[in-house]
Design a protein around this nucleic acid. Structure first.
Lengths: 361, 361
DNA sequence: CTGAAAGCGCTTACAG
DNA sequence: CTGAAAGCGCTTACAG
């Protein structure tokens, strides 16, 4: 038995400097600092916010008092007085997916630097939702859901809360002042079709997302629209045949693919997955049905998530630039928060997707 | 060219009921409701909070006024008066991973039902972090990070803010009142080793996580500790040889595996990945080096994420019950928020992992 | 240059 | 049973 390993990992059971609960921490207020620093509360406020000249010596006393008492301004009270809450709401429709994971991670990094917290929330469907998110709590809202009703979005934009929309579908009908991040999904989807077409594929199948409620993408969903438009441009058929949508779980999708081939008799030669997960489910399904990928059927996904590289054959996929998107979102929402009045129309940012070629095509 | 498809997807460009910005929405306050309902603000408050008897007729007038004016209480003001903010902070160390995605998704569902919002935040390393999260903004804090310094955790527990710890590592040194969710990682990790041992594997390799800062898991990390303890029980070697840790990116890990075999000459026959991602990187690496999985080397992962099924061979993995964990976290934090004073010591909840056998072992 | 005071939108102890 | 009033912790217009 070797025990050398224990030296590798440092054992650290911390020794606490002050073992007593520092109950003080929670009750320190402006008044305490003012007393400690022998100035008025007003001065303390101005020092903290840095929006008025304060005599150098006093300033220093205030700063020392803050440090000494470990004072932290009560965020609630500040927000109540019209200051920002420093909380931004992010509404997502697929929290579980790697796509949002990466995006949120980037946003968090940027947000933290700028002093914001990100509240994450699924796009709940009940009436109450918009009311709840609209209680002056959030400085701004980012909508990254494809299902959020346009009417509700318009209602939020109409109020004066800063909004940034991640353009997963067509938002051109939304009027007013808001931010829009075009992530290049539409052009990316067209490129996917182009790529399959160049490979000689003429009988395509689009695999729409799985959702517990069996929701299918609207026609204004950029990926679906890109698939349609590019197919039409190539004169390829675009019918009910070419889409599987409305599945509520993985087995429904697998079964739908089997039915497409064996019952409907549609022998497709190219699969376009709305995301990598769908593409890989499709790939597994057709392999089970006896087809070879990519010999018989080419498969392409979307998101370029980790799993692409672990599949066999490795999945080609359209990469979305989460890092740039996250940064663009935060810059946009912050400038809307700081200067909403200086904008008179919607502001846009365009990003591009990039095809990562692997062996599934 | 077919156009039948357009009937499939309902075109809905919404018609907005009131095209004018309803600026009113944002200024409705207690006073407005009181005036509209011809009662005092006090009564409005009691109706809303339901904590005092209010004459039936008045109550109704208030409710009608609220509905008519679409009144929403200002969450900031409520929170300032000692009510809850209804925000819970979740501190994670790997926002991108599927593990947290699933977990957060479950938590969100439960939280929404209970009227809470979840703020998600990475475990930022700077001094300021604990101060920032401690500004009376959050009703409770859930810590799901393995890197958060124990001292800081103790500091938070010492203040009176409700805390729930996801037990990714050993927290037995933390004293005071807090919630603890034991997710079964330790027993799960021991089971992984058992499973490899039963398959005849005697030369194991643990692949620790990748982190940008090159951090390696502490010895009190449950997965690592489970790996060590079970190996020791079987009399298997437990040395520096048996662990690859501190890699900052995927290529470093791949290279470390190559070096392990070709430079160090350690021919292992079982890989235990700290999570599926690590396990799959390991699997790819050894395949590249000419080994067959599972003939020469067995591989087991942790998390049972989607990608397990798309790998070849399909990856066996230890499943963590995110759904139950999410529910347990929320129940615990809510009971701590509602009844902190009734608890006198830490409360615990134990969950189990479950091995999902596939063909990589 | 600086401080006393009003007020953000709520809740609830208190006095009727 | 009910309302006027104090106060939560801040910010900033206002008056010196």
């Amino acid at each position: 038995m070797y025990t050398g390993v224990y030296t590798l990992f440092i054992l650290h059971f911390p020794e606490f400097e002050d073992p007593m609960p520092d109950k003080t921490l929670k009750t320190i207020t402006r008044a305490d600092i003012a007393k400690e620093a022998r100035v008025s509360e007003t001065v303390v406020s101005y020092v903290i916010n840095g929006n008025r000249y304060v005599n150098g010596e006093k300033r220093q006393r205030v700063e020392e008092a803050i440090a000494k008492l470990k004072y932290r301004p009560n965020a609630m009270a500040r927000a109540l007085k019209g200051k920002k809450s420093n909380h931004i709401l992010f509404v997502a429709d697929d929290i579980q997916g790697e796509y949002f994971g990466k995006l949120i991670s980037e946003i968090d990094t940027f947000a933290y630097k700028e002093g914001y917290f990100i509240t994450l929330c699924a796009d709940h469907k009940d009436e109450d939702f918009v009311d709840r998110i609209y209680s002056r709590f959030f400085d701004g809202i980012v909508i990254g859901s494809a299902n959020f009703p346009l009417k509700q979005i318009q209602r939020l934009v109409n109020s004066d809360i800063p909004i940034v929309l991640l353009e997963i579908r067509d938002y051109s009908s939304i009027t007013g002042v808001y931010g829009l991040i075009n992530t290049g999904l539409y052009r990316g989807a067209r490129n996917c079709v182009r790529c399959l077409y160049d490979r000689g594929r003429r009988n395509l199948l689009f695999l729409d997302r799985i959702s517990k409620e069996g929701q299918r993408s609207d026609r204004d969903d950029w990926r679906l629209k890109g698939f349609f438009d590019q197919s039409l441009e190539y004169g390829l058929p675009v019918t009910e045949r070419n889409v599987i949508a409305g599945c509520r779980n993985e087995s429904e999708l697998t079964e739908a693919i089997r039915a497409k081939v064996q019952d409907e008799g549609y022998i497709f030669d190219g699969i376009f997955g709305r995301n990598d997960h769908m593409a890989l489910l499709g790939m597994e399904a057709v392999k089970t049905l006896g087809f070879a990928v990519p010999r018989d059927i080419s498969v392409i996904g979307f998101d370029n998530s980790r799993m692409c590289r672990f599949a066999s054959p490795k999945l080609s996929s359209m990469e979305i630039q989460q890092k740039s998107i996250g940064e663009a979102i935060m810059k946009m929402i912050i400038s809307l928060i700081d200067n909403r009045s200086s904008f008179t129309s919607r502001i846009e940012e365009h990003l591009e997707t990039q095809l990562i070629m692997r062996s599934s095509i």
